[in-house]
Every structure is written in C-alpha cells, then in structure tokens.
Amino acid sequence: MPPRTARRLPARALPLALSTLALAAFCAPAAADPAAKGLEIARKCDAANAGFGSEEARVEMVLVNAGGDRVERKLGMKTLEVGDDGDRSLLTFEWPPDVKGTRLLTHAHPGDDDDQWLYLPAMRRVKRISARSQSAAFMGSEFAFEDLGGQEVSKYTWRLEGEEKVGERDVWKLIRVPTNKRSGYSKQVVWMDKQYCQPVKIDYHDRKQTLLKTMTATAFARHGKWWRPQSLEMVNHQTHKRSILKWAERSMQADLDEDDFDKDALED
C-alpha cells in the first residue's frame, strides 16, 4: 500500500517546499561553505572579545604530573590591545623564586612573526629573541607558548563542523588549522560558546594527527561586557600530566598604555 502522505504531499507541501527552497537559496553560500561560516564565527567572536583596551591579571598555575604531584607557579600578565596590530603582552614570572622578575614581552603581529624580548634580572639584560619555538612548553607546563599567545583569527584557517552542546552550553564546533608551519599542531577542534564567544573546550592534535591535549575552560565571569574564563585546564593525553591556570585577580580596561609595553618597561 502506498504511503498516504504520497498522495497528500502536492497539495499541502507546495507552499512549504517553496519556502524551504527560498530559505535554502538565501542561506546556501554559508551552509554550503563551512570554511566561510567558520571564519565568520571566528571573526564575530574576535569582535565580541575586542575593545577591552587593556587587561592586568595575576595568575597561578598548578602543574600536576601523572603521579598526582603538584607544583605551583605564579605570574603577572598585562595585555594591551593595539588597533591596527596584534596585542602586546608582558608576562612577569613571580614564582618559583629563582626566576622571579624574569619578563617576556611580546608584540604580536597578525600574518607575521611576533617580536619578543626576554628580560634576565640577574644580569639586568634585555635580550631580543626570535619568536619562540611555538610548540615549546611554557614554564614546564602542558601549555605551549602558542596556546597562550595571541589567538588572532588570521593565524588559522577555519571550518564550521556543526552545532552541539557541551554540558548545558550551546556551542559551535569549529576546526582551526594553524597557518604557521612552526606550530606544534596539525589542527585544533574548538567548541566555541555561543554566548561567551570563548572556547569552552579545545582538542589539540599533534603533527602526527594524534590527539595530544584537551583544554577545558571553566568558571566564566563577566568583566564589563566581556566574558572570560577564570580557569583553564590542559590535560595531556600522551603523558597524563595536566596543568591548571587560575586567574587570582583580573582587571579589564586597566591603567596601561604603550609605554608599559616597550623595552624600557621590562626593566621597571
């Protein structure tokens, strides 16, 4: 017996089909091109996170080895938005005490290598360094320098994989591939929160296409109009070590200007 709907369809479905076709035609470029849609979301979130001017924070990092032993690191972070260029950042190491006062100044440039200077307090020396090996570990943690550096949209190619839920949160699932050949990753899978416009989870795949690490962002708090995670946890699936970054203090639109991010500022 033929299905009943087969006979009814023409009469009732025509207006609906036409509407669907019209809608599909309207949405076709984005739906048919996940790369364009992915880039559009990345840009949208980048714009949503911009405009904070400057940020000052104190951060604690807990490193946990496979056996569960924990060690603590402390650092100060300052960031300055630069209108037509990448962000400027200044990291000051505060713990452990043998590296206390060591500073790393970065001037990020979209589409180009970053400028970096290292300040070595024991020698009172400011040293120009090449943009560090992207995949190198940051302070012995599971975070690489590129995980914590400027996340400019142009440093990746983007693709929208779909829409999902992570816990209770609505997210876009995006694939981003680093354009820098010195990156330690072949790709990253990003679950981007639709409300926060921030990643709530990222899977990092190494150059051999194997899942290397997963970062989870939690405890989001609103600072003015910007959402920021108060905690990032990075789990290394290959070594079973993990590192947790926690923001102890954070102030947006801090009293900082370009003079706080030049070479002279390293010695202050």
């Binding site: 360094i129 090449s130 560090r132 090996s133 992207q134 995949s135 190198a136 570990a137 690489a144 010195r182 330690g184």
Partner: peptide, 11 residues
C-alpha cells in the same frame, strides 16, 4: 648568529 628551533617541549 643565534638559531633556535623546537625539540619536543624544549628548545
């Protein structure tokens, strides 16, 4: 000249 590159998690 100083030439640097990544070696695992080190440099």
């Amino acid at each position: 000249l100083e030439v640097g590159w990544g070696v695992g998690q080190g440099e």
